[in-house]
Amino acid sequence: MSFRTEEYIRSPGGKQRGATLIVVMLVLVVLTVLGVSAMRMGLSNLNVATNSQVGNLLYQSSDAGLYYLMRLDPLKEAVPGGALAVVNLPGREDMFCMRMKGATPSLKAGVCDPAVTDDFMSGRNAVLTQVYVKSSQIDTAPTLGNDLDNLNQSLTMTSTAVLPAFGSATTATIKGCLALPGDDTVAGKLANGSIYYYEDPAVVSASECLTTNGAIFTTLVEDVQIVRELK
């Protein structure tokens, strides 16, 4: 009688191969989730930074338009064709395109055109700044000084800066919106003859048009009073 002995060698790592694969897959999943989260966070930070830059650029451009208007000489500009020619015509509004590419800032009568490179505020052709000057009233009763010959004139100055490259509005739409009134207030008269001003819902302003069409813009408004001594 003979006996046969068989020996089986069991590898201690046999059951560990499957566990290693699962661990590796879990690590890959975790790394993928972390990578996607980091990418989304980076995009969010980029959007925040871009929005901040756009907001600052638009505000500075709008403010530049108002600053230029405030520095104009009323005696020189209150003539036909001048930026302040509206002072003697209550309710009239003139519009100009603010240009800063030349040696000195200037105003072009009419509407800023996104198709005209000279109408942009800088060489990057990024921002258009449209300014509006509207005469709200003429008051011969002075509020400053005691000279009865003083002439007081109240003006509403509006400056709108828009980025044509941003937003959903087309360049043609932006040009059409900028051609609309900057100020939508109109004058009314009470029974006692005094004049008051109110926003007319029938008047569509440039800001309302730009908002409706998804343009990226900023509008600043300044109410000023010009007091001149006539003698």
Rank of each mutant, 00 (worst) to 15 (best):
55 G>C: 09
93 E>R: 00
123 G>E: 14
36 V>A: 07
66 L>W: 08
127 V>W: 07
225 Q>N: 13
54 V>D: 15
124 R>G: 15
104 T>C: 05
144 L>E: 11
90 P>Q: 03
36 V>F: 04
85 A>L: 00
171 T>N: 11
221 V>Y: 00
196 Y>H: 05
160 T>R: 13
211 T>R: 09
73 D>T: 04
71 R>V: 10
46 L>S: 12
99 R>M: 04
172 A>K: 11
134 K>N: 01
141 A>H: 04
100 M>T: 15
133 V>P: 00
44 S>P: 10
223 D>L: 05
56 N>V: 14
4 R>D: 15
158 T>P: 06
1 M>A: 05
25 M>W: 14
104 T>H: 06
3 F>G: 04
48 V>A: 11
76 K>P: 05
214 G>H: 11
132 Y>T: 03
153 Q>Y: 06
53 Q>I: 13
204 V>Y: 08
78 A>I: 08
68 Y>N: 05
142 P>M: 03
146 N>H: 07
6 E>P: 09
145 G>Q: 07
45 N>A: 11
122 S>W: 06
189 K>Y: 08
147 D>H: 08
157 M>S: 03
213 N>K: 13
231 K>I: 08
15 K>H: 11
228 R>S: 08
221 V>K: 00
166 F>S: 13
35 G>Q: 14
94 D>M: 01
47 N>G: 03
39 M>G: 12
1 M>K: 03
222 E>P: 07
226 I>F: 03
144 L>R: 06
64 A>Y: 09
36 V>M: 07
87 V>E: 00
126 A>H: 13
135 S>H: 02
78 A>Q: 12
46 L>I: 10
125 N>M: 04
34 L>Y: 09
30 V>D: 06
144 L>G: 04
130 Q>P: 10
81 G>Q: 06
158 T>A: 07
66 L>I: 12
133 V>L: 01
27 V>I: 14
68 Y>P: 04
169 A>H: 08
139 D>K: 01
62 S>I: 12
81 G>L: 05
174 I>V: 06
190 L>Q: 09
224 V>L: 07
84 L>R: 00
209 C>F: 05
154 S>L: 09
195 I>G: 06
59 Y>V: 08
159 S>M: 02
112 C>I: 15
138 I>G: 01
77 E>A: 05
202 A>C: 02
154 S>Q: 15
189 K>C: 08
77 E>L: 00
86 V>K: 00
219 T>F: 06
140 T>M: 02
226 I>P: 03
176 G>E: 11
178 L>R: 15
141 A>G: 02
173 T>N: 12
52 S>C: 06
164 P>E: 01
167 G>P: 11
58 L>N: 15
119 D>W: 04
60 Q>C: 09
